[in-house]
Simulated scan of single mutants.
Amino acid sequence: MYPDEFDYYTAESVGEALDLLDEHSDAETELLAGGHSLLPAMKTGLSSPEVLIDISGVDAMHGIEVDDDTLSIGAMERYSALTDSDEVAEHAPALAAAAQQVGDVQVRNRGTLGGNLAHADPAADLPAAALASNVTLVAEGPDGERSIPADDFFFGMYATDLTPDELLTRVEIPSADGAVGTYAKKPSPSSGYAMVGVAALLDTDDDTVESASVGANGVMDHGVRLESVEDALAGGSLDDDSIEAAAGHAGDDLDVAMMMDDLQASNEFRAQLLEVYTERALTSAMDADSASAAAD
């Protein structure tokens, strides 16, 4: 299938991209990053932008850097860059684990971190990891930069706190050096997207959980924190019994009637999957923590 006609522009800087957004503010405009969500939608007629602004070549939106205790990743960095980066593995292990499970090699070589988060597909893999990693998303618009905590960024299906005249330029992540991060998902058999995905980031000391951050996607119409699971884990031991008990709280703060309900899975089934995959993510974290302790 072929998309409708559109005007195509390339931006070489953040300022140029913002100028193009302003210039075409009266038209239906889309930003092109990796294109793995947008282009299929255009070909099937689900999206028909009048203007397409390609931001993939904006150098300022690339790069992975560690500054003091903060990991900064450009929004145009590809999934493959995240999976290949020692800095991401060390400082943002939950994000690295989730990126490894995105699509296939071809998708990971083209899709971008910023495109994934800004698109906010409820079944995408990275929102859960962004929440668990306590990511701050940095957007730039006509009034300059602003920082948006991940907890305040996602609020509906394909809906974020970004305004139409803003551009997501990078994400900043507090270093989780020494913590263990995991991601477990039940992939859709037809698409590979997450029917349910759970990311966990645990910081332990002698088998005691000092802090826990857990996020989920595929369950609600946007990524959510599982605060009851976090509270159940914090301060306790990390063992099979505590993990099973904590996973049992996965749906405490969520309304089953509001969970995703489609041909892939009913809302009741997703509630069950959420508990199961929360336990799997936490068990993987426990195993990784044990392996790290043994290596030391």
Results as ranks from 00 to 15, higher is better:
D151M: 01
D151I: 01
F154L: 02
G156H: 15
Y158H: 15
A159Y: 11
L162C: 14
T163H: 14
P164F: 07
E166S: 08
L167S: 07
L167R: 08
T169W: 02
T169C: 08
R170K: 14
R170Q: 05
V171S: 00
E172G: 01
S175K: 00
S175D: 00
S175A: 09
A176N: 07
D177H: 01
G178L: 07
G178A: 10
A179E: 08
V180S: 02
G181N: 02
T182C: 10
A184H: 05
A184E: 11
K185C: 03
K186E: 06
S188D: 15
S188M: 06
S188L: 05
P189L: 05
S190K: 10
S191E: 09
G192C: 08
M195Y: 02
A199F: 06
A200C: 14
A200D: 01
L201T: 07
L202D: 00
L202K: 02
D203A: 06
T204G: 00
D205A: 14
D205F: 09
D207E: 12
T208V: 12
T208S: 03
V209W: 04
E210K: 09
E210V: 15
S211A: 10
A212Y: 01
A212F: 00
A212E: 02
S213F: 08
V214S: 00
V214G: 01
G215V: 01
A216W: 03
A216L: 06
A216Q: 03
G218A: 07
G218I: 06
G218M: 03
V219I: 09
M220I: 04
D221Y: 06
D221Q: 13
G223C: 11
V224M: 04
V224D: 00
V224Y: 03
R225S: 01
L226M: 03
E227D: 08
V229S: 05
E230Y: 03
A232C: 10
A232Y: 04
L233W: 04
A234M: 06
G236H: 10
D240W: 15
D240R: 15
S242V: 13
I243Q: 04
A245N: 15
A246H: 09
A247T: 06
H249L: 09
H249P: 02
G251I: 03
D252Y: 13
D252R: 15
D252K: 15
L254C: 13
D255L: 07
D255F: 00
V256N: 04
A257S: 14
A257R: 12
M258F: 11
D261P: 11
D261E: 12
D262I: 10
A265R: 10
S266L: 04
S266Q: 09
S266D: 06
N267T: 06
N267W: 07
N267S: 14
E268N: 12
F269Q: 14
F269I: 12
F269T: 14
R270M: 09
R270N: 07
R270V: 04
A271Y: 10
A271M: 10
Q272V: 09
L274E: 04
E275H: 11
Y277N: 04
R280T: 05
R280F: 08
A281L: 05
T283G: 08
T283V: 11
S284M: 13
S284N: 14
A285K: 01
A288Y: 11
D289P: 01
S290T: 12
S292N: 15
